[in-house]
């Protein structure tokens, strides 16, 4: 087995709450190599963020509990690593961008201060050196008037500019892995495209591995190398972008693709997946997707489908993937 930059292996996470145990992640595996962009796709609540938080080590524990699996970074398991060692990796080698930049930045410190803190803590620089670096970075993420704005507070920026600040902070120490959790969801469409371009440019320049979390297929197409589709805490299908678009092998992926508006489908009614995502407190037995699945058989209700190799580098967790892939 070749060594990947990041290898999430059969991860299980649950939340023990007053209402019961929510099984948020149920055996997620994916890998990421340098220079590669992995898009993680799925409805909200499917466990995309929880997976990312577990990789970063910022899961709320309790109520969260990691009940199984490994996360290998350069071959070393992050989950069993001593906290001191992990702290050095966090932020410096694996960094993360959050969806809501307004709440993710500390409102009482200037943006420069918050970027400079990375250099102060990880590189032992003085505040002044850190601030100079902050200006550099703000220029790299194309914030106009970076020199003046470095002393502004987060609420003084627009949403798009604030997201650039988050990006500047995340890339400040040249991380090997960048996790972007719905980086554009909170933004206007035009700004979305600019931020995606910026992320893509930065990723190429620095040869980072990037995990792009989104529930928007449209964002994925131009940016990602491969896609992992999540449903109820599992990866139901994973493939490179073109294979997945051309030959979806899981009914859920197919539903997602069909529900995407296309340039050539004007006038046609949009397809929507029937039903609602399941409650994590009481997942349906067998295949979690079965209550909403147009291909459902008895087997789906009784047995959990294994992840099968559909083609090279293309897996799906469906008993009837052949039937699905045929269309």
């Amino acid at each position: 087995m070749s060594e990947h930059l990041l290898d999430v292996d059969d991860l299980y996470v649950e939340f023990r709450t007053r209402d019961g145990v929510a099984e948020a992640i149920n055996g997620v595996s994916y890998t990421l190599d340098a220079g590669e962009t992995l898009a993680v796709l799925g409805e909200s609540g499917s466990g995309k963020s929880v997976t990312a938080q577990t990789i970063m080590g910022i899961l709320d524990m309790p109520p969260g509990f990691i009940t199984g699996g490994r996360i290998l970074y350069n071959g070393k398991d992050l989950l069993t690593m001593p906290e001191s060692e992990r702290q050095k990796i966090r932020g410096a080698e694996i960094a993360m961008i959050f969806q809501d930049s307004l709440s993710a930045l500390n409102p009482v410190f200037t943006v420069g201060d918050q970027i400079a803190e990375m250099f102060q803590v990880h590189r032992g620089m003085s505040k002044k050196e850190g601030m100079a670096k902050a200006v550099d970075l703000m220029e790299q993420v194309r914030i106009p008037g970076a020199k003046e704005r470095v002393k502004d507070y987060p609420h003084q920026f627009s949403g798009g500019m604030r997201q650039r600040i988050m990006i500047a902070m995340a890339i400040s120490l040249d991380p090997k892995v960048l996790i972007a959790d719905e980086p554009t969801t909170a933004l206007d469409v035009t700004v979305q495209a600019q931020i995606m371009d910026l992320l893509q440019d930065l990723q190429r320049e620095r040869n980072m591995g990037m995990i792009l979390i989104t529930h928007d297929l449209g964002v994925v197409a131009g940016v990602a190398d491969k896609i992992a589709v999540m449903y109820a805490g599992r990866i139901v299908e994973s493939a490179n972008v073109w294979d997945l678009y051309a030959k979806p092998a899981h009914p859920y992926t197919q539903g997602l693709l069909d529900s995407m508006p296309r340039v050539d489908s004007k006038g046609e009614e949009l397809y929507a997946i029937k039903g609602l995502p399941p409650s994590l407190l009481a997942l349906p037995p067998g295949c979690n997707f079965n209550p909403r699945c147009p291909h459902r058989r008895d087997k789906c209700v009784h047995e959990v489908p294994p992840t099968e190799e559909v083609a090279e580098d293309h897996t799906a967790a469906c008993f009837f993937w052949k039937e699905v892939a045929r269309g």
Binding site: M56, Q87, R90, G91, A104, V121
Partner: peptide, 15 residues
Amino acid sequence: LRADYVRTATSKGLS
């Protein structure tokens, strides 16, 4: 302690 910016601070690798 449960606020997003505290989570960000942790993700920056601060002690």
